[in-house]
Design a protein around this nucleic acid. Structure first.
Length: 505
RNA sequence: GGCGCGGUGGCCGAGGAGUUAGGCAGAGGUCUGCAAAACCUCGUACAGCGGUGCAAGUCCGCUCCGCGCCUCCA
C-alpha cells in the first residue's frame, strides 16, 4: 500500500521498519478549551488510518499525546481563577467525550506532557552535551544553526527563514530561530526541578520524548498531524530527535488538510471556530447521526484536501447516509418477510461482494482514499437494489448471501468508523401516548406495537374500500409522530421516520 | 518577499493521457390508488492562453484567481 510522505512529497510504498510492526505518533490537543471541527478532522483522519492499518494486519502501536502544560493553559487558569491542572483535567474529559461521540478509537497510549518530563530532561541534557542546545538564564534553547538538516521537512533554508522572520527577538537567544526546550518558571506557574532551575518544557519537546519513551524506537514509522504543524513544530521535533539520537526520527510524515470557513482556515485566532460541543448540543438526541454525518462529510473528501465547512454540507452528508439505512431496512425486511423459493442466486451476490471488497481495498491502499472507497459502497448498494428489484423472492441460500452482502457493507463502514445500525427497530417516541391517548384508552393497550398493528389494519381496510383519504390520514398522522409507513409489494412497513414532524416543538 | 497547495458539471467531490467516479439538489420516466423507497434517463464538467503527444481535466510553460505556511495553531 502507498502513503503520501510530506518529507519526500511523493506517494511511497509503505514498508514498516520492522516486519509487520507500525509505530505511529499523532499530535494530540493542547487541553485549554473545547476542540473545534478542524481539530476533530485530524483525529478522524488518523483514526481511519489507524483502523485501516490494523485491518491490513499490521501490529500498530498508536500514541497520541495530551499537552497538559503550556502558556495557553496557564493563561486560561488565571482567567478562570483556578489551577492549570484543573483546566487540563476539565478539557481532557471534554476531549474524550468528543472523541467518543465521533467514534474515534482511543490510541493505544495517550501520555500527558507532565508525566513525560523526566524523559524530556534527559533529551535536553543530551542535546547540551552535543552542543546542540544551550542554557541562558534558566531557559534552554535549541541551537538551530548547528543542526544541518534543519528545514528538510518544510523545505526551507535557515537563511530564508531568517529573512522572513517575524518573531520578536529574545536577547538571550544566540539566533532568533532558536526555540525553547525548557522555560524558566515564573512565580505561581507550574514548575518542575531541573539542572537549570525550576521550569517547564517547551512545547515541541514532548513529542520527541514520548516517541522514545512510549514507542520505544529512535526511528518510528509514521508521524501525523495537521498541515500547520509542519513548520515549526515537526521541523523542531526532527531537530530535537535526530540531534539527540543521531538517527532518522520518522520514516513517513503524514499531514491532513485544513477545515476552512468561507475559504479561510478555521482557527481560534481567526475567531471562526465551530466546536464539536456546539454540534453535540444541536444533535443532542441523535449523537449517532452526528457521528455518521460528520464522518461522511469528512471522509468523502480525501484527508489531505481542504474542506470548506458549511452547515448545509453537514446536512447534505446526512442525506447521503440515508441510502445506507434504506438498504439495511430493505434487507432486514426481506429476510423476515419474503417467502422462500428454490432458485439459488447467491453466486451473483457473492461476485458483487468480492468485487466490492477488492476495489475498496485498493482505494484505501492508495493513500487512504476514503472518497473512492465510499463511492464504491454506494455503487454496491445500487447493484443490490437492482438485484432486489429483479428478484422479489429469494431462496434460503440467496438470503444468506444477501445477509453476507449487508455484513460486508457494515464491516467496511466500520473500518471508516461509521456506525449505521443494521437492526432497524421501531423506536417510538413517547408522544404516541398523548396523540393517541383516546385510542390507547379505548383499546386498553400499553403496547405500541399492537396499537400500530391495529391502525395499520384499519388503514388496510380503508384502502380495500378505496377510502384513500382516510388511509392517507393515518399515514400522515403516524409520520407526524415519527413513524414512517411505506407500502411495499408485501404489505405496509413501519420504520422510524428520519425527520419526525413534531407539531408542537 | 520566500516556500507549498489548489482552481472539475447547480452544489460537494474523486480521478490524473484514451473507457460511467460517487453524493446532494433539479427535471422527466418506470412501478404505485397516492405517497415513500427503488431503478432508468437528462444536464454532456475539468480557470484562461499557448505547447508536446495519434490522443490532454490529466504532461510542460505562461497568465489570472484562491488558499496555506514563514508567529501559537489539527
Amino acid at each position: 500500500m502507498k502513503v503520501y510522505n510530506t518529507l519526500s512529497q511523493n506517494k511511497e510504498e509503505l514498508t514498516p521498519l520492522s516486519d509487520k510492526e507500525i509505530k505511529m505518533y499523532v499530535c494530540g490537543p493542547t487541553v485549554y478549551g473545547y476542540i473545534h471541527i478542524g481539530n476533530a478532522r485530524a483525529y478522524i483522519a488518523f483514526d481511519v488510518i489507524y483502523r485501516w492499518l490494523k485491518h491490513k494486519g499490521f501490529d500498530v502501536t498508536y500514541v497520541r499525546n495530551l499537552t497538559d502544560v503550556d502558556d495557553k493553559i496557564i493563561n486560561r487558569a488565571k482567567e478562570e481563577n483556578t489551577t492549570a491542572g484543573d483546566i487540563a483535567k476539565k478539557y481532557i474529559e471534554a476531549f474524550h467525550n468528543d472523541m467518543d461521540v465521533l467514534g474515534v478509537l482511543p490510541p493505544d497510549i495517550e501520555p500527558t506532557a507532565t508525566e513525560t518530563i523526566p524523559k524530556m530532561l534527559e533529551i535536553i541534557e543530551g542535546l547540551i552535551d552535543k552542543g546542540l542546545a544551550y542554557e541562558a538564564d534558566g531557559d534552554v534553547f535549541y541551537r538551530v544553526r548547528s543542526f544541518k538538516d534543519y528545514g528538510k521537512l518544510s523545505k526551507r533554508s535557515i537563511d530564508e527563514l531568517e529573512a522572513g522572520a517575524r518573531v520578536e527577538v529574545d536577547e538571550r537567544k544566540e539566533d532568533p530561530l532558536d526555540f525553547a526546550l525548557w522555560k524558566k518558571a515564573k512565580e505561581g506557574e507550574p514548575a518542575w526541578d531541573s539542572l537549570w532551575g525550576k521550569g517547564r518544557p517547551g512545547w515541541h519537546l514532548e513529542c520527541s520524548a514520548m516517541s522514545l519513551q512510549y514507542l520505544k524506537r529512535e526511528t518510528i514509522d509514521i508521524h501525523g498531524g495537521g498541515h500547520d504543524l509542519i513548520f515549526p513544530h515537526h521541523e523542531n521535533e526532527i531537530a530535537q530527535s535526530e540531534g539527540y539520537t543521531g538517527k532518522p526520527f520518522v520514516k513517513y510524515w503524514l499531514h491532513n488538510g485544513f477545515v476552512n470557513i468561507k475559504k479561510e482556515k478555521m482557527a481560534k485566532s481567526v475567531g471562526n471556530i465551530v466546536t464539536i460541543k456546539e454540534l453535540e448540543e444541536r444533535y443532542k438526541d441523535r449523537l449517532n447521526d452526528l457521528r455518521n454525518s460528520f464522518r461522511m462529510l469528512f471522509l468523502k473528501t480525501h484527508y489531505r484536501s481542504p474542506i470548506d465547512f458549511d452547515d448545509e454540507l453537514l446536512t447534505e452528508a446526512e442525506a447521503s447516509g440515508d441510502g445506507i439505512s434504506e438498504i439495511y431496512k430493505r434487507i432486514a425486511f426481506i429476510i423476515d418477510e419474503a417467502p422462500d423459493i428454490n432458485e439459488d442466486k447467491s453466486v451473483e451476490l457473492e461476485e458483487l461482494s468480492s468485487k466490492l471488497e477488492q476495489t475498496f481495498t485498493s482505494a484505501m491502499d492508495d493513500d487512504f482514499n476514503s472518497s473512492v472507497a465510499i463511492s464504491l459502497i454506494f455503487d454496491f448498494i445500487r447493484d443490490l437494489n437492482i438485484f432486489l428489484d429483479d428478484n422479489t423472492n429469494l431462496s434460503r441460500a440467496t438470503k444468506g448471501a444477501l445477509v453476507n452482502s449487508r455484513n460486508l457493507i457494515n464491516k467496511l463502514l466500520l473500518l471508516l468508523g461509521f456506525n449505521f445500525p443494521i437492526e432497524i427497530k421501531l423506536n417510538l417516541p413517547p408522544k404516541i401516548a398523548n396523540t393517541y391517548e383516546e385510542f390507547a384508552k379505548k383499546k386498553a393497550l400499553g403496547d405500541v406495537d399492537k396499537m400500530l398493528q391495529e391502525l395499520l389494519e384499519i388503514r388496510d381496510k380503508a384502502k380495500a374500500n378505496k377510502e384513500f383519504s382516510k388511509a392517507d390520514q393515518i399515514r400522515d398522522e403516524l409520520n407526524a409522530i415519527g413513524i414512517k409507513i411505506e407500502d411495499t409489494p408485501l404489505g405496509p412497513v413501519a420504520s422510524p421516520s428520519p425527520e419526525p414532524n413534531y407539531e408542537d416543538e
